[in-house]
Design a protein around this nucleic acid. Structure first.
Lengths: 210, 210
DNA sequence: CGAGTTGGATAGTGAGAGTATCCAACTAGG
DNA sequence: CCTAGTTGGATACTCTCACTATCCAACTCG
């Protein structure tokens, strides 16, 4: 497959493909001469993954590139690679670790994770992310109680362990594992979000509409 | 409160506050003279809401401004206002209604909503949003079965009706109702997402780590 | 053999979210 | 009362991001 065919098959314009190649999101094709390279199904698949992460997940190109780099570093053990991928999915976050409110929220998050006996890296950025949301909720006058947080956490754990993790082929090739993890996190995550909004609309119609 | 105090209290720089005033995200303060205006707690609260929607929800300023406009249009009935707010929360979406795959996915979404007997507007952009995600999942080789979709939908509905909707004061002032709805949708939505990622990390550590 | 593609390099674009600068009109402290 | 400092409002500028556009020399296919 040449670049023009890859473009036609994926719907991504050639200059954009070249841009992804430059940024390292897409591996180089196999050079057949100084001005010709051959692309395969793996490239098409990768391209679809990139578009899904960009358009559905709104991930910045830089994060996608980190994920790709972790996949391609053969030295890196699988669980570390998954961690790298996972953390690249976190929101940027604005670092304000100095104020007291934030510190208390972070404490609540750590306690929650301890009590649930979850295995989450002590420095995982996800912890900070959750703490920030708790602070905002407080400031906006809709605080989340420890009790409901635990409830929601249980729910999510059931969802993840019963339905999502089973689909990830941890024993297959490393690329496949991250790909599944990332797709699971981003696309299923978005799907849940949309379903939640649909449920909300339906409920508020039921309550309010004539 | 003058603008400099509003800025100090919220942590938002003065030029940014001026920008929000220009864009109509923040209502004008009460003019006390040609070059002086007074801001109150409502402004501070609104400012925090704006920052939460921007930084946590990643909503574009234009969407926030639509929500605000709906709140401030006294003519608009409450359920329509909530709808406007709700649809402003949807992802932009790229409109490709021509291809067959997409059409089939849309059909699946409509069927799902029918079978669940949810009250969702037939033209709700949320339907398209979900259809697009289904298409991507298919293309990426991780299709979501009707069965699991129904399962997830049930779960979300329980979450929403048992825990979220109860907190929204539909009978109070209109501003409060949308505010709660929006905070609920965006911030709780993000909180669930983060909890899901934490659960995922914990599960993959359990499976993979020595 | 010549029109058309390709890879690679470099530069330009457009949207989005702020920032910076000016200015005239106040207002508050001395 | 007078002057240094803020304010509101208008206008213009900046920065980042994700692309696009243009060039060019080297091929390749008909």
């Amino acid at each position: 497959m040449r670049i023009s065919q890859l473009s036609a098959a994926s719907g991504v314009p050639i200059p954009t493909i070249k841009y992804y190649l430059r940024e390292g999101l897409l591996p180089q094709g196999e050079q057949t001469s100084a001005t010709r390279a051959e692309y395969g199904d793996a490239h098409l698949r990768r391209l679809r993954l990139i578009r899904a992460l960009l358009e559905v997940g709104r991930l910045p190109v830089a994060s996608i590139s980190k994920i790709v780099a972790a996949v391609e570093d053969e030295e890196m053990p699988v669980h570390e690679m998954l961690g790298t991928a996972h953390y690249a999915l976190a929101s940027p976050g604005e670092s304000r670790p100095d104020d007291e409110e934030h510190h208390a929220a972070r404490e609540r998050v750590d306690t929650l994770i301890d009590e649930l006996e979850w295995s989450v890296h002590p420095e995982a950025p996800t912890r900070e992310e959750l703490a920030q949301i708790l602070v905002r909720l407080d400031q906006l006058g809709m605080p989340a109680s420890d009790q409901s947080m635990r409830h929601y956490a249980d729910l999510m754990m059931r969802l993840v362990s019963e339905h999502e993790m089973g689909k990830i082929p941890f024993d297959g090739p490393r690329e496949t594992a991250v790909e599944s993890l990332v797709i699971g996190t981003v696309l299923y995550g978005k799907a849940f979000d949309v379903l939640r909004r649909l449920a909300q609309e339906s409920e508020s119609a039921r309550i309010l509409d004539p």
